[in-house]
Amino acid sequence: MFKIVHREELGQGTVILNEIEAPLIAKKAKPGQFVILKANETGERIPLTMANTDPEKGTITIVYMIIGRSTATFASLKVGDSFMDVIGPLGRPTHLEKVGKVVCVGGGTGVAVLHPITRALKEIGNDVTAITGARNKDLIILEDLMTKASNTLHICTDDGSYGHHGFVTDILKEKIENEDIKMVVAIGPVPMMRAVAEMTRPQGIHTLVSLNPIMVDGTGMCGCCRVSVGGETKFACVDGPEFDAHKVDFKELMLRLHSYTEMEKQSYEDFKAGK
């Protein structure tokens, strides 16, 4: 059992942060790696990239938006409650290298995944600009952590209620036009990652994305998480989750994320009705 030692509600309660006791994983995990969590006996195995680890305390932190039965079940767990199963660290860590000027772009809960990568890139000497976005001020998450993790943080809101009025790509465009950006990391909703990839493609700026396809085992055993990268089929769980954004077939990824939409909807409705 994996006990929750700290819990926060972010973004007006739409997003939950759990700090979980998992000493073996905390000791081994590197930025970019994920865990698979299962809340209880009847639960689903859900992959989430870690937002933080504390090897000394023996904890890992995950951040997720409540979108269906499984995340709603996770969200119902209180401090002192436990996840039945946590498996990891899985996937390949981010390849960290000192390249100079780096831009880290995050949207939604992708900001949480982006956090340890941003921090690590800065720690090895890169000049890191972070750009995070949300629909409005209330949905902005982890502003303090991202401020510390980066050299400069820009926040964008779709409605202009905070920071830049507009999309993350507006700021990114400005950066690319005015500075010598060596690398971009983009983590968030698929349309955002695709937009970033298209923006950096003309100059050929090395761009990494962290993908979140549906998974089951997370160890390369089932092939559920296959994605097309440069015309080849890759398993995100063992070959990723990070890939070269310019090679990813985002359209296919987006379609495959809808594999179970109907069943997921039914299951969530049942959950909300107390079934």
Partner: peptide, 20 residues
């Protein structure tokens, strides 16, 4: 994948089990 979903995750008993 198909068998893991049905057997290990007990997807045949969806929605009593969460895995579709």
């Amino acid at each position: 994948e198909y068998l893991t979903r049905t057997n290990l995750m007990k997807g045949y008993d969806f929605p009593n089990y969460d895995t579709p």
